[in-house]
């Protein structure tokens, strides 16, 4: 099991991973992976399907006890999954407030306001649209004021228009929280990574196979980043022009 020692994270870092491995049977998915995430950094994690992105994220979330190596996170970790995973028997506001100390409902209301869901606070989750449910899930993660926010393809099930809105929302929220929160966004969408992240990682062969920093000011236009886009697609094994 990976050791979780907050003391070993350098002050400028939120997370530090050294030699993290995870195998399922004789299939090694993560192979002595090293990664540091800076405080307030927005990291996007790309990788082919089955490359181990979710596995890495689950290890960071503390959901996987069968990893080996060193893993330390400073501060709370919050997760928004691909499916919103709201408890259907709790109203939206109670989903957001779940697990908060007493008085959490007020903070939950604030979080719902931030994601523009005030009107749906007392709704049952099953009545929400896909985008609304995803925003509720985001509010539930944000209200915990996490040091590290893990997003596992939270936008992939949304239509293109809603996805753009969600990108803006995530950037706004991250700005708004004075960038104390580091974000690790798992995605298979290269454009999404380019538009949002400070740093883009490509997972391959169980390690960080490639990383690029993106200094461009936000909001970005994808047409300004075509060179990097082609390189990342190459890293992902997609020939230029086939996308």
């Amino acid at each position: 099991m990976a050791t979780r020692l907050p003391t070993r994270v350098a002050p400028e870092h939120t997370a530090r991973i050294r030699g993290l491995s995870r195998a399922f049977g004789d299939r090694t998915v993560l192979d002595r992976l090293d990664l540091d995430i800076e405080r307030g950094e927005f990291v996007a994690l790309l990788g082919r399907s089955g490359s181990g992105k979710s596995t890495l994220l689950r290890a960071l979330a503390g959901l996987d006890r069968d990893t080996t190596g060193e893993l330390a996170v400073d501060g709370t970790v919050a997760v928004a999954f691909q499916e919103p995973r709201l408890l259907p028997w709790k109203r939206v506001i109670d989903n957001v407030a779940l697990g908060l100390p007493p008085g959490g409902r007020e903070r939950a209301r604030d979080a719902l306001r931030e994601v523009g869901l005030t009107a749906r606070a007392d709704a049952w989750p099953l009545t929400l649209s896909g985008g609304e449910a995803q925003r509720a899930s985001l509010a539930r993660a944000l209200v915990r004021e996490p040091g590290l926010l893990l997003l596992d393809e939270p936008f992939s099930a949304l239509d293109a228009l809603t996805r753009i809105t969600m990108h803006r929302l995530v950037l706004d929220l991250w700005d708004h929280h004075a960038r104390d929160t580091s974000v690790l966004l798992v995605t298979h969408d290269v454009d999404e990574a380019l538009l949002l992240a400070d740093r883009v990682l490509v997972l391959g062969e169980g390690r960080i196979a490639h990383e690029s920093r993106i200094e461009a000011e936000r909001p970005r236009r994808i047409t300004d980043l075509t060179a990097l886009r082609d390189r990342l697609l190459g890293e992902l094994g997609v020939e230029e022009g086939t996308r």
Binding site: L63, T76, A78, F81, E83, R85, L87, L98
Partner: peptide, 24 residues
């Protein structure tokens, strides 16, 4: 998936049973 979500919300065992498992 809901149990995992409960874990990431730092619900203890009792809270997990009360808020997730029993209603489920």
């Amino acid at each position: 998936g809901l149990i995992e979500a409960g874990r990431t919300l730092r619900l203890g065992r009792t809270a997990l049973i009360r808020h997730v498992i029993l209603p489920g």
